[in-house]
């Protein structure tokens, strides 16, 4: 599910942002303004980074809250007491 969400986010970023860019990225003058090009790239990268950051940190926060020992829903894992903690798959 998480993967599907992130995949659709990626597609959104890939499709929508360039369109917005075309619509609003007006010509600055005869010559290219490197500030515009580079900062736009930077903000696109930031959109990607913060989206992924939200997904990953959200997952981490959820994991920490849900699977902490003191969570009322916490149940012993099936490996507890079996001595199989170090049994790698």
């Amino acid at each position: 599910m998480r993967a599907v969400c992130s995949l659709s986010l990626v597609l959104m970023i890939l499709v929508i942002l360039p369109t917005v860019n075309l619509a609003f990225g007006a010509e600055v003058g005869e010559y290219l303004d490197r500030r515009v090009e580079i900062w736009n790239l930077f903000f696109r990268m930031m959109v990607v980074a913060f989206t992924i950051g939200a997904v990953v940190s959200g997952t981490m926060i959820w994991l920490v809250i849900r699977f902490r020992e003191s969570n009322p829903k916490a149940t012993p894992t099936k490996y507890e007491g079996t001595g199989e903690l170090d049994r790698y798959e």
Partner: peptide, 27 residues
């Protein structure tokens, strides 16, 4: 993250520092 998923995590110092470290590693 997949290892922590479905576990019963004891947050004593070593685990706290590790999880904090993973968060900052991602950043």
């Amino acid at each position: 993250l997949a290892t922590m998923w479905g576990g019963r995590i004891k947050f004593t110092a070593p685990m706290k520092w590790s999880v904090g470290g993973i968060a900052l590693f991602f950043a």
